[in-house]
Design a binder for these strands. Structure first.
Lengths: 139, 139
DNA sequence: CGGGATCCTACTTGATACTG
DNA sequence: CAGTATCAAGTAGGATCCCG
């Protein structure tokens, strides 16, 4: 049997969204991780100033030091955040959004706007479904 | 001190984004699930036509029957998708994006655009980091 | 045909402890 | 201070079986 090659090639029309290599898929995977958007937003709020690790953590209530570390490493690796180390004792590490990171923040701002405008409507829809279910159940 | 106003939500306590009740958080939780964006996109491509379950599944390569079912139930519950059942034997079930769902698709289109424009840059950044790490390691 | 229920695996997250 | 390493837990996702 012949190897059909990359499956993505078959779905030319609607294309890439179904492929794990799809850029949108990769972006959503990143935004889906819990602290990514929060970190980008917090760094964007501070931009163009740098923010130290501990200060960043203070501004992101609930984040563990490990998850902040993991998140920042991922963002740095992606080129969305720059990392600067002052080799003092103790060391001081500064983070700042790159240009690429700032452009992502613009997209996130769009998401935020939609969410603020429409999530209440989604909540109402959920509530309505719950009401129906409740009535059906206790009938 | 002056009136807090709407900006308080953004800058004051820094409150909303870090809260699990935050609308943006709730939206990202939804978009973060694997098949949500794919389903919305596929239904948007078909809009304003309805799409049957099996046909939808055919248009979303890789999705399992269960995950499609779960995803559609969630979207329907959120009021993003409408569901119509023809009580025949066997039953025929049709799905379609609601107006709310269509407006979400617009936001997703923005995400897609950014991803297509910038994910290659992120890939390059990752590749560069890998190169450095490799050289450092095998030196 | 559509989809609910069950079981199971893998990944993400979090708590804790240790290091330069 | 700024991490890294380890372990435990919760959850998203997939495979399968069954039902109306």
């Amino acid at each position: 049997m012949t190897t059909p090659g990359p499956r993505a090639a078959q779905h030319g029309v609607r294309g890439d969204l179904f492929d794990p290599q799809c850029p949108t898929r990769q972006l959503l995977d990143r935004l889906g991780t819990k602290w990514t958007s929060m970190a980008v937003r917090t760094l964007a709020d501070a931009a163009p100033e740098e923010v130290r690790f501990a200060e960043l953590r203070r501004r992101m209530p609930g984040v563990s030091q490990k998850m902040l570390s993991v998140t920042l490493r991922s963002l740095t690796r992606d080129g969305l955040v720059s990392r600067r180390v002052e080799p003092t004792v103790p060391p001081r590490v500064f983070y700042r959004l790159t240009g690429l990171g700032l452009s992502l923040e613009a997209v996130l701002a769009g998401l935020r706007t939609w969410a603020e405008e429409h999530m209440a409507e989604i909540d109402r829809a959920n509530y309505a479904v719950d009401q129906e279910a409740g009535e059906t159940e206790e009938a």
